[in-house]
Write a protein that binds this DNA or RNA. Structure first.
Lengths: 264, 264
DNA sequence: GACAACTCCGTACGCCGTAAGCTAATGTCT
DNA sequence: AGACATTAGCTTACGGCGTACGGAGTTGTC
């Protein structure tokens, strides 16, 4: 199920999200009271925690991400993290933003906004497949961090050059995000399913068909169009990542036909 | 985080999914051994469990859906459910399919496939907003039940009439699903956030802006396009559901411009 | 030297999914 | 009628989770 973000204390979360990037708030829980700073030195940093958490999620998946697991990786306990991070939810928010770091500031457009959009989508697709747990964090979250913001900003930069009808901008942006995200999710989950069950994609698919044929022998007559669509041609590609990627490319083509003038 | 479905024993899951709809397997765990049926009468049914679980998810959200909660609602314990359903994962799969029940078999197309697609998308949007937890179940799941299958089948029926280039069919279908699902997710989560915090959408938005202005005073110069996009006009609509719906309508328009000939 | 502020973190609580196994009910077979 | 295999229902319990709470130890200021 989707993990909803942005639910803790918004001020605290946003301070953490924008902390290093803002000239105003230098850093740290330490600074919260305006006064000095007694007490032991801090042994961890928020960034170290974020990176450890991302490492856990990348390696073992979001299901296995727990405060205890992050603590283990850092050689401490789960509770030690709570000095730096108010809760797991906030940590996920921070992970989410951090995983979008290093995004290109701009994409070369020239006279070809279409290929720039495709490059942007390709980068986002890569990012999602590299950190599939990103797709399990709600993207309707309203607490945006600086790195996520860059992803949006770079797309807007591309579209700014193309002369869109102004009322197409917002829907176009939403649609592009939804398409990439949806396709990447399909790909990531197909890949994960194959890895989890250990059966090849083709093998798995034929087993499923046999089962369906037995349980629902009238399938073909009840769902003729689905049957036609699923009809396996001999050169069928069972790899879920390639399938999803092809669907994404096609979907982007259709959408951009409606959105942009053709590159030339 | 997204709950991955379709991971239990596929044969058992599919038998449950297609059970009532198939002439072959009459029903029930009872029947699994070919032999007769000693032991106490069964006091529950799979359908009752599914419906109770959906009621819990509708009322309290997916986070609060637990086997114990479903058991409580049925006046029994959590463990009593395991006679009927192999695990929570399978139960979620069954819930997912069941929540798509009653889908229109066909949409009137006439010469207007475009409006038929829009009606289909509208129905799906409604369904998602009525059962927002559906959006937290992965839709890349390959174990399809009969009701989900009808959703796809009806769309294919519409598109069959329009003469699409054949290579546009799959990407078009994927894109339509992704658009509706993405928009509904944005809407549902915005709605949930407003309900959870108790602040009005407008109030919440202005607080967020003030916070951002303080933490990242250089926001406008670093993200000029985002700033321009977010620029609040006086007649701005803060309601997240309406916003997402408008984005969906616009996105569908763009996509269908690329996909279909205009209705007339 | 006193004290306040702070970090660190062990313990514990109430959740969760579900494995294991007992009890009692029911059918078939002798 | 009685024996017995099979099954549903359910209790108990285990190992996980997020995190509240509070004690212990460390560091700065007065």
């Amino acid at each position: 199920m989707t993990l909803y973000g942005g639910q803790g204390d918004p001020a605290r979360t946003m301070a953490l999200l924008w902390r290093a990037h803002s000239p105003a708030t230098e850093d740290a829980p330490r600074q919260r009271t305006g006064r000095a700073a007694p007490g032991p030195k801090q042994g961890l940093t928020v960034d170290a925690i974020i990176e450890a958490a991302i490492a856990v999620a990348d390696a073992d998946g979001m299901d296995r991400l727990s405060m205890r697991a992050v603590g283990d990786r850092l050689g401490t306990s789960a509770m030690a993290l709570y000095t730096y991070v108010p809760s797991k939810r906030e940590l996920v928010d921070l992970m989410y933003d951090h995983a979008h770091a290093g995004w290109p500031q701009t994409y070369p457009t020239g006279d070809a906004p279409r290929s720039a959009v495709l490059a942007w989508a390709d980068d986002l697709w890569d990012r999602y497949l590299r950190h599939p747990w990103l797709l399990q964090v709600s993207y309707a979250r309203p607490v945006l961090g600086p790195h996520e913001q860059s992803v949006l900003e770079s797309l807007l930069g591309i579209l700014h050059g193309a002369d869109l009808p102004p009322q197409s901008l917002r829907p176009g942006v939403s649609a592009l995000f939804h398409l990439v995200r949806g396709a990447a999710q399909t790909a990531a989950e197909g890949r994960a399913a194959a890895a989890a069950t250990g059966t090849s994609d083709q093998q798995w698919w034929t087993e499923r068909s046999a089962l369906l044929a037995r349980l629902a022998p009238d399938f073909a007559s009840r769902f003729p169009h689905s049957t036609a669509l699923g009809g396996a041609s001999s050169d069928m590609d069972y790899d879920p990542v390639r399938q999803a990627r092809r669907a994404l490319d096609g979907g982007l083509r259709l959408l951009l036909d409606g959105l942009l003038p053709p590159d030339d």
